[in-house]
Design a protein around this nucleic acid. Structure first.
Length: 308
DNA sequence: ATGCCGAGCATCGCTCGA
């Protein structure tokens, strides 16, 4: 499927995606299929569930992607891939935090600083896992405050394990006691956005039901009973370049799929420094947002049959 | 309140995810 079908601009763009792959060893072929079809420039992966030595670096390299990764046996694990360029690692783990889990990688790739994060799930809410989630979130927000004001373009991308509002879930009733919907969890996310970060998918599609995760239970995928928990947040430097955003939900309908689908944004090429300073043509934020045409998610039937 | 599915491992039954 050529990407030009969904492009909204003739100018060159950069596509960044985040994808909770739920076990990279059992899903390497699925990953390669998606990369070949969608050709993202930068990819954040979560839940590798594999040690560093089991990361399929050679197969990815043969597909044109260089990578850095922080694996872990059984659980967690994050990676950043870049097409035709080696990501430059900037950080492994949040600052000042000896986290026993592999949940955070930060790198420069294709002129963007990308933070790939896998925020703790936090269930059950009556115990140490929920405390760990809130603690992790607070440390992320402290670090994000510095990234937001950076002169460099920064994107926070990953599985945040937060359903930001009741509009981001098919039906909140059976999830009321889940860590993903707790008021404390949502307050952490609200505080993060209050730093100024732009929630790219919601900004471009304010009135659209968008899901990035459909669990394996109760026919949730065929019924399109999903949650929006994978997010791409843009700092003030990069936000004016946002052109499009969406979910590759077709991936969720493939045999042996992860319970998440890849979620992506497209950014306009950086405005050259000379033009940025001297020209009034530099697009303000609002017009950059309006440029992007809303992209509908396919119907449940279309997804179930693999068509768009 | 629990299981429903799926990956992974202390692999013929459990933990964890969300």
């Amino acid at each position: 499927m050529p990407r030009s079908n969904i492009k909204t601009s003739k100018s060159k763009t950069l596509r960044l995606a985040t994808y909770n792959i739920n076990g990279i060893r059992s899903r390497t072929e699925r990953l390669l299929d998606w990369l070949e079809r969608e050709q993202p420039d930068v990819v954040c992966l979560q839940e590798l569930k594999a040690e560093d030595s089991a990361f399929p670096a050679l197969k990815l390299r043969q597909a044109g992607y260089y990578a850095i990764w922080h694996g872990q046996r059984s659980w967690n694990g994050v990676a950043i891939l870049a097409r035709d360029a080696q990501p430059i690692e900037l950080r492994r783990g949040l600052p000042g935090f000896a986290d026993p889990h592999s949940r955070y990688l930060e790198a420069a790739a294709h002129g963007i600083i990308v933070a790939c994060l896998y925020l703790p799930n936090g269930n059950p809410i009556t115990g140490p896992k929920f405390s760990y989630k809130l603690d992790w979130f607070a440390r992320l927000n402290a670090h994000a405050a510095n990234l937001y004001t950076s002169e460099h373009p920064v994107v926070l991308a990953g599985d945040f394990n937060v359903v930001p509002t009741d509009f981001d879930i098919y039906d909140p009733k059976s999830w009321r006691r889940d860590a993903l919907l707790q008021p404390q969890t949502r307050e952490c996310f609200r505080q993060l956005l209050a730093q100024g970060w732009l929630d790219a998918l919601r900004a471009l599609h304010p009135d659209e039901r968008i899901y990035t995760f459909w669990d394996y239970f109760r026919e949730h995928w065929p019924r399109n009973a999903g949650l929006r928990i994978d997010h791409l947040l843009l700092n003030r430097t990069v936000a004016p370049r946002l052109q499009a955003a969406g979910v590759d939900s077709w991936v969720r309908g493939e045999p042996g799929a992860s319970d998440h689908a890849p979620t992506w944004i497209e950014l306009a090429d950086a405005v050259p420094e000379l033009e940025k300073g001297s020209s009034k043509k530099s697009a303000p934020k609002q017009s950059a947002l309006k440029r992007a045409a809303p992209k509908k998610q396919p119907t449940a039937r279309a997804r179930a049959t693999g068509k768009r």
